[in-house]
Design a protein around this nucleic acid. Structure first.
Lengths: 215, 215
DNA sequence: TCGGTAAGCTGACGGCATGACAGGACAAGT
DNA sequence: ACTTGTCCTGTCATGCCGTCAGCTTACCGA
């Protein structure tokens, strides 16, 4: 489906080339976790990967370009987040379980891709369409499923008609993403991880079903 | 209370100095709105302000330092957000009004300070304590008020005991902040501003009181 | 009016990152 | 060993960073 990996000047990358390319991406990922995005320099990434800046520019137009590649990779994994919602029940105890698992899965995914998601978020907020699309692809995998859930409940008359499924789902997902990216902030503020999760689940359940969960 | 404005090398800034300093801040603000944070260069800010890079370094240690000053200024205004919650009722129609006004006020504040808040958010997410404190100061003005509201309702037995007021308030505020910073995203995704607001208000009301609002 | 003093600004400079290129090193097949 | 195409790096021009010495400007007391 996706064409082979190519260098900036159009050559196809062979086995060795792909290895160094990947190494550069790995080192970049690591740098993003340890230093501010604004201060990540090509030369540092190259040094860390045991190669030269010129090599970096053979595979990526610039730092941003490389970040996009990492993000793209992550987005593929993110597609699996749909499973946290699709085909699940929102009724009774099962509904509460769905809520909890959604929150857990989401927080976990965000924690694992912490650094790169920060940059994607920034790029999207700054209006960069490439970052925005990636962010959307990840969030949509959940948002769409949630939107469907709300519509379904509405059809059954279990949820008020004046709720906009898309807006509700979008808001909840945005909340999850926001809380996830400031998890450390919550803890240093005195809110424990263990009380955060059930509260988020409660909010999700309230938002989707309009009712308090039965635990 | 706060000492006079000082240059990096310790001189006190006079009338003229403060003017150029402010001009630099204004230009920086403008640049942040129009170009990616990563690409904002001292030389561009200086050029835009009709002065030289050296002048910039007289007033700020670096771009980040200047951004912090802008953020500090904004945080002062943000303190006023408390009024959106403090002393308001969460009962009946008044409760719904409180929800709506909170959402409106929040979204408006965020829209006005769009660019700078993006950077503050990034800095905070990256673990920079200075940015984190500023972000906290703004959000806390609302979060604390909301936390109190929840506690009060709990005391009256109107809200379940197993809710953590702080976690709930924090999550809701995080949601508001997240939705606010991706407002454009929602609209391009097909969710209208007009349906977003009431849905957010609904979620806030649900989260705080545990009940659907009476409109 | 006239220095004197401190504030305010800038030209210039070494240092470093960027991004492009050409040429050398290397692996694989003949 | 030779050829071929991939892969890496030394080098270079360019431009931004961050600092300093030194010049200009404003203010103030005598």
């Amino acid at each position: 489906m996706t064409g082979q990996v190519r260098t900036v000047d159009g050559r196809v990358a062979g086995r060795r080339g792909q290895a160094t390319r990947q190494k550069l991406l790995d080192c970049l990922s690591e740098m993003l976790s340890s230093s501010p995005y604004r201060d990540v320099k090509v030369i540092d990434v190259a040094r860390k990967a045991g190669t030269s800046p010129a090599t970096f520019y053979q595979y990526f137009p610039d730092v941003e370009g490389a970040v996009l590649d990492i993000a793209e990779e992550m987005a593929k994994e993110g597609a699996g987040l749909t499973d946290l919602v699709a085909g699940r029940s929102w009724v009774g105890k099962a509904g509460w379980a769905t809520s909890e698992e959604l929150v857990d899965g989401f927080l976990d995914f965000w924690r694992r891709h912490d650094a790169i998601l920060r940059v994607v978020d920034l790029g999207a907020a700054e209006g960069d369409k490439r970052f925005y699309k990636i962010r959307m692809r990840i969030l949509n995998s959940v948002t769409n499923s949630l939107t469907d859930s709300v519509k379904e409940l509405q059809a059954k008359g279990k949820v008020d008609k004046d709720i906009s499924p898309a807006a509700m789902a979008g808001s909840l997902v945005a909340m999850l993403a926001a809380v996830a990216s400031h998890q450390k902030g919550f803890t240093t503020w005195g809110v424990k991880q263990s009380e955060l999760r059930p509260n988020l689940a409660q909010l999700v359940h309230l938002g989707i079903t309009g009712k308090k969960p039965t635990k």
